[in-house]
Write a protein that binds this DNA or RNA. Structure first.
Lengths: 111, 111
DNA sequence: AAGCTATTTCGATAAATCTAGAATTAAGCC
DNA sequence: GGCTTAATTCTAGATTTATCGAAATAGCTT
């Protein structure tokens, strides 16, 4: 059984890489059905094998999910997991400071 | 100049380790003046040198700050940075999902 | 200054991560 | 079946990270 802290750490670690953070960003802003790996590759301009490796890391951490559609694989964000993670981080790390500003606005403007 | 993504990734990476996450947890919940390294050490029961290494990682990432008080060093959380990070993560990774539940409650119950 | 405590820095080793070319699998199409 | 596209897995090398004992530093206290 993996503890809460260990799981959160694994997920944060998965996010702790510029390329993976950029990948997730794309995936989050992409279509709900998921973004094809190939599109991510051409956008981010990195070798396919490297991308695949990072995608596997994100998927292993449970941050994204995969679905095949013909020959293409579509990656989409698991918002439930992302929420759980931000919630955990919030309560664990930011709550505790006494006078805190209000929580970040949930889903407003994005470019 | 380090980009926004790179900086966020560095900070997330710093959080992406069970021991460091546990450290931050203690520090956040500890006194505002900061928690002595020695107390962290006895609580977490890890070698002093290992702890020091992790503390340096957290400090380098800007998540915690240090202040000397006699022979002891007190570590305290930088809530501003933590906020900025959670905000970034929120807007970057969680906004984008269409029907989102309300944001996590800011600072309510903690055990 | 000598001694004590708190903590870091040094040094060394084991393990994990990152990267990417080459080979492989998976699926559709003629 | 054979060809093409999409993506992964294999393999390997370079770099980084994690760990921790031993040695060094910083600051009391007497």
């Amino acid at each position: 059984m993996t503890g809460r802290v260990e799981q959160a750490a694994e997920r944060l670690k998965a996010l702790g890489h510029p390329v993976r953070l950029a990948i997730l960003r794309r995936v989050v802003q992409g279509p709900e059905a998921g973004t094809p790996a190939g599109e991510l590759q051409s956008r981010l301009d990195i070798p396919a094998s490297t991308l695949s490796h990072h995608l596997a890391t994100l998927a292993d951490a449970g941050l994204v999910q995969v679905a095949r559609e013909g020959t293409t694989l579509r990656y989409r964000a698991d918002f439930g997991v992302l929420h759980a993670l931000t919630d955990y981080l919030w309560q664990d790390c930011c709550a505790g400071g006494a006078a805190e500003p209000p929580p970040p606005s949930p889903c407003c403007d994005r470019d």
